[in-house]
């Protein structure tokens, strides 16, 4: 298990848990990121948002906020 912001490009996994205030949870679920959702990290540069592919969609997420998203890694 690792947090999403520590994952490197091309790494895949399944979201295990998400933590944060109501606003964050509501925003992150509305873009499709929920527990059980498959994710693939596309780009993770320092000082830039993380690019994640989920539910057919490429999404940019704030790096710091991704600390609160835990992912069960899967080897591809």
């Amino acid at each position: 298990m690792t947090s999403l912001n520590k994952m490197s490009p091309d790494q895949e996994g399944v979201v295990a848990s998400i933590d944060g205030d109501t606003r964050f949870l509501s925003r992150i679920t509305s873009i499709g990121l929920t527990p059980g959702c498959k994710v693939k990290v596309i780009k993770n540069d320092k000082g830039r948002p993380i690019l994640v592919f989920l539910r057919d969609t490429l999404v940019a997420l704030n790096n710091k906020e991704c600390e609160r998203i835990l992912v069960e890694e899967r080897s591809n």
């Binding site: 606003r23 925003r27 948002p49 969609t57 490429l58 999404v59 940019a60 704030n62």
Partner: peptide, 10 residues
Amino acid sequence: RYGIIMELPP
């Protein structure tokens, strides 16, 4: 003011 959560459309 909160972090970016944005779709990058094809």
